[in-house]
Nucleic acid binder design. Structure first.
Length: 522
RNA sequence: GGCGGAGUAGCUCAGUUGGUUAGAGCACCGGAAUCAUAAUCCGGGUGUCGGCGGUUCGAGUCCGCCCUCCGCUACCA
């Protein structure tokens, strides 16, 4: 199905199953979902991947604590993340799990490739290890305990241990990575993050331990079953597994790799922007085209943490405000890349002011007038004035502005461009006063309402990536066929046909009042 | 400490390569309208553009110093 359409492959991180899905997971995937939908509507052959990271000692411990086999345990907890994709209407094309056979095979294949290329060697990993925590700690994290023994932040005693470990020769990649960043200035966004990464790499790189012998829940190292492949090499490889690695000649791999975008939270940027390109280049593969590091949300101005008990449940959020409303808020409230604050008042302001009042009411007032004054049919446009034409021209040109924003993941700017048009449309309604024209000049009224209906068609088509349900309902109310909702149908060639019967309009963006969404439009 | 970013109207932010009276949204005040989800539209800001000094005919926009805040400074996803 790829044909000659441009392809677009984008990924979320794979989420660690030891966590319960929270707003941060939903946010990352939401950003990808909006982008994936946008690209599909814009004619791209899109591949949108998300999934779960299911290996590691913490998972093994949790499974044991639950009295379960690790595989059965991960089968259960990874379901939480698949449920989230349904609850939030995510349109991912695939959901990968690191415990799947395809991934284990892929991991071992890239491992062999790196070994053959001389990028991996056997050494030993030494550090302060806390038996109680089953974890290593850095020297700077330790404190002196009684008896002069070192103590971990958790209070556990640590001891100096050495274990055999395979290492990836990251230290040899500094210059090549810097050259890569130089040659690809948009590889890391936002730009401030790019500076951080470059600064980090300039500071020198150490070889990276990529295997463990202290636990077993992972992908076995080929030809050395005492070791399992450690976290990042396992986890990051999912991005190529999902498009067919190690079958690099397959149609899938040829079509979709390198990925156009890895969307990540700012906390895991380094792994994606430093380790991952090095792994890939070391294995003779192309690095991805972009890594975008987005920010975090606070809750009513407070840092979110389990200990504070203010974690935001993405499913509850949607039940409270509505899915499209939450999707809109998260992508509109904050310049994408920055941190943001989720607070009730801001949510309601966006929901009522921008969705219900600006957008919803625009559609409702126009469609109602058509319903009452035009026999519920798309009116016949007469001669257009310069104002009409200029106004419609703005609607036709909107896609260009939104596209420019989306190409650099500036969701807030794309939405701002759409809202500038919505505000202008409300101004046009008032300036033309079609309710007056109904009595004085019905033909002119028809033209005005036609121009507005056509504008709303453009708006609804453009808001589909952000608010799929509400946008679809608006397009239904304009009787736009399902197959005429792509961006190719923007512009005059697919304009509404006069005489088309329209259903009775219904509100699509309820207001939030008195602690409840209004009944209407629910 | 080192490197980097930021400090613009009450709030959140835009402000191309320096150039007419520094902008938007929200909030607030006043007016209009009444088609519409009590929604909409129009009008209204004397803002030390963090501070001081400098370059320039001219700086929010360049340079220096200072103040404040933030991010990064490796093997936990």
């Amino acid at each position: 199905m790829s044909g000659s359409r441009p392809r677009y492959y984008l990924t979320t991180p794979i989420y660690y199953v030891n966590d319960v899905p929270h707003i941060g997971h939903a946010y990352t995937t939401l950003a990808c979902d909006a982008l994936a939908r946008f690209m599909r509507l814009d004619g791209h052959d899109v591949r949108f991947l998300t999934g779960t990271d299911e290996h590691g000692q913490k998972v093994a411990n949790s499974a044991r604590a639950a009295g379960m086999d690790p595989q059965a345990f991960t089968d259960r907890v990874s379901q939480n993340f698949r449920d989230l994709t349904d609850a939030w209407n995510f349109s991912n094309d695939d959901f990968i799990r690191t415990t799947e056979a395809r991934h284990i095979r892929s991991c071992q294949a890239i491992w062999r490739k790196l070994v053959a290329a001389g990028e991996i060697y056997l050494g030993s990993y030494a550090g302060w290890y806390a038996v109680r925590d089953e974890a290593f700690y850095g020297e700077n994290e330790l404190q002196d305990g009684p008896d002069g023994k070192k103590v971990a932040p958790s209070g556990a005693e640590v001891e100096w241990v050495e274990e055999p470990s395979y290492f990836f020769k990251l230290s040899a990649w500094q210059d090549r990575l810097l050259a890569f960043y130089q040659a690809n200035p948009d590889f890391i966004l936002p730009e401030s993050r790019r500076n951080e990464v470059i600064s980090f790499v300039k500071g020198g790189l150490r070889d990276l331990s990529v295997s463990r012998t202290t636990f077993k829940w992972g992908v076995p190292v080929p030809d050395d079953p005492d070791h399992i492949i450690y976290v990042w090499l396992d986890a990051l490889t999912n991005y190529i597994t999902a498009v067919g690695y190690p079958e690099t000649e397959s149609e899938s791999f040829q079509t979709y790799w390198p990925a156009d975008l890895h969307m990540v939270g700012k906390d895991i940027l380094r792994f994606h922007a430093v380790y991952w390109p090095a792994f890939l280049m070391g294995a003779g593969l192309e690095p991805p085209r972009r890594v975008f590091a987005h920010g975090w949300w606070t809750n009513e101005g407070q840092k979110i943490s389990k200990s504070l008990g203010n974690v935001i449940d993405p499913v509850e959020l949607v039940e409270k405000y509505g899915l499209d409303q939450v999707r809109y808020f998260l992508l509109r409230e904050v310049p994408f890349g920055n941190d943001g604050d989720f607070n009730h008042q801001a949510m309601v302001n966006r929901m009522n002011g921008e969705l219900a009042n600006d957008y919803g009411n625009l559609a409702q007032r126009v469609l109602s007038m058509i319903n009452k004054n035009c026999q519920a049919k798309v009116p016949e446009p007469g001669e257009m004035t310069g104002d009409d034409e200029g106004f419609l021209g703005s609607a036709h040109g909107l896609i260009g502005q939104v596209r420019d924003a989306m190409e650099v993941q500036a969701f807030h700017e794309g939405l701002e461009a759409v809202w500038a048009m919505i505000r202008a449309a409300n101004g046009y309604v008032d300036a033309q006063a079609p309710w007056k024209l109904a009595k004085e000049d019905p033909a002119r009224m028809g033209t005005v309402l036609y121009v507005l209906a056509e504008t709303i068609r453009h708006l609804a088509i453009l808001t589909q990536p952000f608010m799929p349900d509400a946008s679809a309902r608006l397009l239904d109310q304009l009787a736009v066929p399902e197959d005429a909702r792509a961006f190719a149908c923007l512009g005059p060639d697919h304009a509404l046909k006069a005489g088309t019967e329209l259903p009775k309009p219904e509100g699509v963006f309820p207001r939030y009042e008195n602690g409840e969404k209004t009944e209407e439009g629910e």
